[in-house]
Design a protein around this nucleic acid. Sequence first.
RNA 1: GGGCGCGUAGCUCAAACGGAUAGAGCAUCGGAUUUCUAAUCCGACGGUUGCAGGUUCGAAUCCUGCCGCGCCUACCA
Length: 705
Amino acid sequence: MLLSHARNHALQTARPLPALLKSLFFNRLEGCLYRYLERRLTHHLLQCLQRLYPGVVLPGIVIEQPPKVELGDFAIPFFPFAKPLRSAPLKIAEAIRAEIGPIQGIGEMQVSPPGYLNVSIDRGWMAAALAADAKPTVELPRGKILVEHSSINPNKAAHIGHLRNAVLGDTFVRLLRYAGRSVDVQNYIDNTGVQVADVVVGFTRIEKKSRAEIEALSKGPRFDYYCWDLYAQVSKWYEADKQNLQVRLQTLHAIEDASTETAAIADLISVAVLRRHLETMDRLGIEYDFLPRESEILHLHFWDAAFTKLKEAGVLAYEAEGKNKGCWVMRRAGTSKSNSTTEGTEGTEGAEGGTEKDKITEEDQKVIVRSNGTVGYVGKDIAYHMWKFGLLGRDFGYRKFYRYPNEHDCWISTADGEKDHPHFGDVAEIYNVIDARQSEAQNTVIEALRGLGHNEAADHYTHFSYEMVALTPRCAAELGYSLSEEDKTRSYIEVSGRKGFGVKADDLLDTLIESAKKEVDSRHPQLSDSERGEIATQIAIGALRYFMLKFTKQSVIAFDFKEALSFEGETGPYAQYAVVRATSIFRKAGIDPEIFSGGGAGSISAVDLARYLNGEAGNEFWELWLASSKTSYVVEKCIATTEPAYLAKHVFQLAQLFNTFYHRHPILTEADDRRKQFLLATVVVVRRELIRALAIMGIIVPSVM
RNA sequence: GGGCGCGUAGCUCAAACGGAUAGAGCAUCGGAUUUCUAAUCCGACGGUUGCAGGUUCGAAUCCUGCCGCGCCUACCA
């Protein structure tokens, strides 16, 4: 791979852009100029080391980023080389610097104590490519990717926890698509589970409503809110008399039989609530391609097909005695197989236990099929995931369910569906956006795939794990919940749909829009109310989506209205505002930024750019250009680590650099026309990258703010 | 008990494979607007990275042991 970059060593300053682009394509570089230079540098360093120290076994080269631009753009520490080469790191760095020779796109190199080689990018070269928006070709892995996210139980309104899931998932989808991958988005619907059963119980037993009455209600606005309250009520009803739990069990069974009235009511409720969820997510620009439902996994006998294969492969074991007598069990993921063999010298039972191969201790057993013959959710999940990878030998029926304003259709599973439908499933890689509490269950599914011999599928199965959203005690108090003394001292309190304790997604969005609207109203009274409303909505979504992405996945978000409602500092609106300012410069100048970036900015020569970017005076500008060059690099990093927070960080840094630049350099009043052109080119590139990066986060920039 | 994760400024969070002076935002205090929009910018204050050892040229990061917290550990989903 590195060899393909090896040709074309000559450093050609002020090379005309078309030739430059041609060479870029010729070298088939990675998707990003910054990454390209990094790879190229690595390659030359390796060659150089081989020339200088033939035959010596050396550690790998690590390329870092220096803490400040003055120090250069890449830093290579030579400390690990000191011992094998029996030389001081500084001396080695110096030797490399003297030997390495020119590299296209790379400028100066300096040795820096205590043992770094600092390498600078050829600023003019890089800026010219950036201004022209040079897009190098990339070789993509083949195959479709399936991202599953949201998967909200269709029995109550979506809350902030679901929002985190959906925003993370949707952003990850956008990241993959930006990187050129083909992605299907699925939202798994558990429409036959306990949670739906509970709401059915609420309607039929507590409220004693008929199917027709429920249907009428379901057509009203925000039916999911009604269910939210009812669900909390049912939980109390169960608590009041444990006998009531019998009703839940009966209802659950009735729902699984599609021919019953109860099943019809459950379907009515779950479909109506699901529709509400899609509407809520649509407000945030989140769309799905397919909604597989548990009812079809049941009715199309996905489990039967999986069960047969699992038994054949010996993944499942039948328990003839003990706690799990009569069940089919699997080894719980993460438990070790060799408990008895590692320290097997002890105990005489070892001989007896050893004869039964792979005997799983009760503690390590995960029940997949209950003794009454019904299958648990992990079992259904195994079947579903075999389907995802095209390993089950069965398929869903499909029908259109929801049409987005942009004409995009979202499909849903049915027992027998439409003839013509897109092909879902049978993918090369999957990502499941599911909270961290389910990691054991997720790993168990992966182990089942391995047990079936599908190691490749298991290797391409990623549990995109994230932590929950909880409420700060203050926030809980604001919502009117009385807290125990113990709760008051906690840093956060878990939301509970069962208790009706939480912040609903639509409520939060409404509050955000209202708050943004007040600001917009006062700033732009000349605009029409609908225009102001649209801007406020875009700002609200920007604030919300940014808020959900600024935290790393493993951090529990302690939700607080004060922070979530903030439009200042490290927020979405801060970044949106930077773009609005950039756009407004062009508006005042009477230039279309899109046209300028095609003609004006792209036609500035590398020499001209270098004039302003080189030297100490150019550092502040270069910092901005360099940051702008990193969008694709950051996207790759986000995908590789399944961590969208890096993108949020990137956006904020870029916006922050731009705001400083904006403050220090008045552009429209700039007398020197060449300098003015340079400043405009800077703005246009930063603006373009900010808009792109924000779009990947699902954030649109308003016309004015 | 076992498994996973967390502990960094008053608060909320960052910190690339172990690298240069541990960074942001909020809060507090002090400044900046005849200017392309102040949802902005500049400055100040704020740290023994939970504790104790270890590994090495170098540790917030890796290892061991403690302390504290959360989640998982159902014939629920």
